[in-house]
């Protein structure tokens, strides 16, 4: 099994505020590890981020307000899964509940993140 990070990008409300998450989306997030298991994968853990307005960026000596890269859809969370290969990882990543945005699948650099579980 290989490990992949699933990066969740969501459109934020005006001014980098958190979007209203409908209850069914929150519920689907809770059910995600189980669904991934049912489909032969495993969720190793994940993190959810406060909206990008709360971010502080540091480039060299310069400390600035806001995210490192301004994008229409901001990074909202990351979780790590185990999957057989990229096709399997894509199948699992497609189950991520999304309001208005999408996900990015990135292979992990051969490190073992199995201790990341909360």
């Amino acid at each position: 099994m290989a490990q992949y990070a699933i990066l969740i990008f969501e459109r934020e409300a005006e001014g980098g505020q958190a979007p209203e998450l409908p209850p069914e989306v929150l519920e689907a997030h809770g059910a995600l590890p189980g669904r991934i298991r049912e489909h032969g994968g495993k969720e190793l853990g994940g993190i959810a981020l406060e909206p990008s307005a709360t971010a502080t960026s540091i480039r060299g000596d310069l400390v600035t307000d806001g995210p490192f890269i301004e994008t229409k859809e901001a990074l909202a969370g990351v979780f790590v899964i185990e999957a057989r290969d990229l096709d399997h990882a894509i199948e699992l990543a497609r189950m991520t509940p999304i309001v208005s945005g999408g996900v990015e699948v990135r292979p992990l650099l051969g490190l073992d993140f199995s201790g990341l579980t909360s």
């Binding site: 290969d85 990229l86 096709d87």
Partner: peptide, 14 residues
């Protein structure tokens, strides 16, 4: 190699 794109014929649905 690094993303493990499978060396396989995709499943019927795909």
């Amino acid at each position: 190699a690094s993303a493990r794109i499978p060396y396989a014929v995709p499943a019927a649905a795909e």
